[in-house]
Write a protein that binds this DNA or RNA. Sequence first.
DNA 1: TTATTTAATACCGACCGTCGGTATGTATAT
DNA 2: ATATACATACCGACGGTCGGTATTAAATAA
Lengths: 221, 221
Amino acid sequence: MARNKYPEETINLILDISLKLFLSKGYDNTSIQDIIDGLGGLSKGAIYHHFKSKESILLAAYKRMSDIVEEQMVKIRDNQSLNGLEKLREMFMSSLKNLKQRDLIAVTPNLLENPKFLAIQMNMMIEEIVPRYIEPVIRQGLTDGSIHTDYPRELADVLILMSNIWLNPLIYPFTEENVADKIGFFNELTKSLGLSLLDKGMEQHLIDIQRKRKKQAKEIS
Amino acid sequence: MARNKYPEETINLILDISLKLFLSKGYDNTSIQDIIDGLGGLSKGAIYHHFKSKESILLAAYKRMSDIVEEQMVKIRDNQSLNGLEKLREMFMSSLKNLKQRDLIAVTPNLLENPKFLAIQMNMMIEEIVPRYIEPVIRQGLTDGSIHTDYPRELADVLILMSNIWLNPLIYPFTEENVADKIGFFNELTKSLGLSLLDKGMEQHLIDIQRKRKKQAKEIS
DNA sequence: TTATTTAATACCGACCGTCGGTATGTATAT
DNA sequence: ATATACATACCGACGGTCGGTATTAAATAA
């Protein structure tokens, strides 16, 4: 294949194919050859020219995926017209919407069967999302009076753990019947922590996500 | 090497070595050859006679490790003289003590760098611990009046998620200074959920675990 | 009971295909 | 002219298999 004048296209192509394969078959079960086969003529040399290892492809793919979320987070965090609590709400809504729109749900059978992905995500939560976005916003809430807690750091940890892990249907699968219970409990818990995070749209989003998953599961079987 | 009259000894030897290697170097970075080298004369044939794959060794090793915990869980769950809340407390204390005693802490640098282990543990929580032990005990608590909640299933999920993941120093590392905050927040949260799970011993256990980790980290460096 | 045969088990180690990764070569764009 | 974007042949390490052998346990015969 001829040399591409715009190598970024090649990089994105590699990331597209790889991400799709990693999500659908799992990282470990995806070989470099699988990626090459999906590349339409490009060879191993192309891959290892742009990436130094298989793992670095995974990291780049994940990063490209999460950059969109991060962008939104930055915007919300630095928005001058919202108080802390409002920012938290916005962040939750935004990550829910994102989960809904992403291809993720459409191809991944189960994140627990994709240990590498699970670990990356948890690491991202602990090292980036909480300290860079959630905790600062909670601390702002403490100052502007919209949030009350003695444990800003811990509150941030647990909120993210619940929303990103426990409310993630790719990790904790749930049925349409018990979505309401999940939301209900989450709502009760946040309220008793002095937050009121949920608005009406949230439940609908989760139900939509659930439906999308169910539909997908049917199509596969 | 001569044939062993008691093959269980061989099996346990394989599991001992493998578990140690998996925990210290990570599953992916441990080769079958590494295991063989630690076996003292036994060969690849021995391993593949007793186990059908590398992954099955991991599963067996994890199972053997968690069987002890499970045994204690069964005992507590089926103890006739405790109410639901008391059983929950016992279970938390027991799993804390266990974490403290296990070699785990002494060798594992970080569970996030051991994705396979992390995934197994999360899967165990969701598929076994919650439905078999935590949820039933909470439901008993509903009946005997020691626990009040509209969401037994969800409460069980989140309690285990917090104690096994968020309070696990191998996943969420913490320093001696913020142990108190973690405990404090956990205590506040459970109390506001109508539970009072912590007793005095718990904090000390967590501090001990933390100290053990710190000491270990020093010895390595 | 004891001796002999038979069958099952425990283990060895050479070998295989596949994998991630490398080295070197070549064509194209700047 | 030179740096870049690939192609391709190749490498060592990996997980796993397979035929073979030694040892034990079970079945049978004496």
